[in-house]
Simulated scan of single mutants.
Amino acid sequence: MRARNERLVLSLVRRHQALAKSEIARMTGLSAQTVSVIMRQLEQDGLLLRGEPIRGKVGQPSVPMRLNPEGALFLGLKIGRRSTELVLTDFLGNVRQRERRTYDYPTPVATLDFAREALDKMLSDLPPVERGRVSGLGIAMPYFLWDWAQTLRVPQEKMDPWRTTDIKAALAATYDFPVFLQNDATAACGAELVFGPAEGPRDFLYFYVGYFIGGGVVLNRSIFSGRGNAGALGPLPVPTETGQVQPLIDVASLYVLERSIAGSGDAANLMWDSANRWDVPDLHLNNWLKQASLGLAYAIASSCSVIDFNCVKIDGWMPPDIKIRLIEGIEAQLSRINLTGLERPEIHAGSVGPDARSLGAASLPLSERYLVEA
């Protein structure tokens, strides 16, 4: 019970950025004495910092407490179809170190070699006191990677080793901290939940537009993962402009844009070097935005007929201006769909951005050790 109450206090402080003991006692129903004991211990553990006292008209001044960024460190490994990345984050989700590698397709041997090399480098760069604050490693990766060989245009035998590779177990056997694993799009959704706006919606549908599009479902401020892969929105059937029906993954994923560019003889691999700015031909970008907006609009309408989401968040590996254009296109397409019997949801940009999968990976040990539904 004590451990849960400590996590509850940390969760509330994270959400509200700073809280005094009296406010926490009111929110939790715990006694003022219990809250005082908990917060004193959390301060001694280096997880909370005191703010400046706020004096009222009567009584003792209240002292707001906030999270100590240096209180704990977390590692996040993102394994994608075109790149892998390792980040070291602090307690607030700020990236302290980053290592990244791009490739044509992922293999288990190369992925493990990169992970161990990057982990060893990051850990060796930390002073001993900070090394002791590393609370775990989260891994965000697509499930069933071997099933995507044909779409990736890779010989099946190159991807088959993933069937028998347990990345989590291999790294857990090497390092002395806990290791967690989650689907990459679900992890991105988790980053929005942990590091997004404090007063965000309790329920929302989430899309992450990467090499393949995926998503997540948040209900009552918790990710709903079902048996492990709920919210995997890529296979959702959607109509196209030609009247055909295709999986959303073959309409709104970035691989569709990449192949369109490559098909005209232009270099498409530059899309993966940086998500801050793309040098993408307008014709290909506009065509992709048009079909992706249409597919996403129908995917949203279908999802809202199952759960009446009042908010949908769109994020991905793309520059902010392109994300805005994509959302504007979705809004326009939704206005053309018959939503009779449904409440039209608000469409918002995700707040984390391209780092959502890596930060989502790092949020796995953070959530497991320090957070609780609040």
Rank of each mutant, 00 (worst) to 15 (best):
R2Q: 14
L10W: 04
Q17G: 07
A18D: 11
K21R: 15
I24S: 05
R26F: 12
V35E: 00
S36C: 07
I38F: 06
R40T: 08
L49V: 13
R50I: 01
G51Y: 02
E52L: 09
K57C: 08
P61K: 08
V63Y: 06
V63P: 03
L67Y: 12
E70C: 05
L73T: 06
Q97A: 14
R100S: 14
Y105S: 12
T111V: 11
T111A: 09
L112E: 14
R116H: 15
A118C: 12
L119T: 03
D120Q: 14
D120I: 02
D125T: 12
P127A: 08
P127S: 10
P127C: 05
P128S: 10
P128H: 09
R131S: 12
G132I: 00
V134P: 04
G136W: 00
I139S: 09
I139M: 11
L145D: 03
W146R: 12
A149H: 15
A149N: 11
L152H: 04
L152R: 05
K158S: 13
D160T: 12
W162V: 00
R163N: 05
T165Y: 05
A169Y: 07
A169R: 13
A170C: 09
F177E: 09
V179D: 02
Q182F: 02
A185S: 13
T186G: 14
G190I: 03
E192V: 06
G196M: 01
D203V: 03
Y206C: 07
Y211N: 12
G214F: 05
G215K: 06
G215I: 08
G216H: 09
V217M: 11
L219G: 01
R221V: 04
S225L: 04
S225N: 10
G228W: 07
A230C: 13
G234R: 04
L236A: 07
P239L: 05
T240Q: 11
D250H: 12
S253F: 04
L254Y: 02
Y255T: 04
G263S: 09
D266Y: 10
A267W: 10
A267M: 11
A267G: 01
A267Q: 13
N276R: 09
W278V: 05
V280N: 01
P281A: 05
D282P: 01
L285V: 05
N286V: 09
L289W: 07
K290A: 14
L294Y: 10
L296V: 02
Y298C: 04
A299L: 04
A299D: 08
A301S: 06
C304H: 02
S305L: 02
S305V: 03
V312H: 01
K313Y: 11
D315A: 09
P319Y: 02
P320A: 10
I324Y: 14
R325G: 06
I327S: 01
I337G: 11
T340D: 13
L342N: 06
E343M: 08
E343K: 14
E346W: 07
I347E: 02
H348Q: 15
V352C: 08
G353P: 00
D355N: 10
A356K: 06
L359P: 01
L359N: 01
A362I: 01
S363M: 03
E368D: 15
L371W: 07
A374H: 13
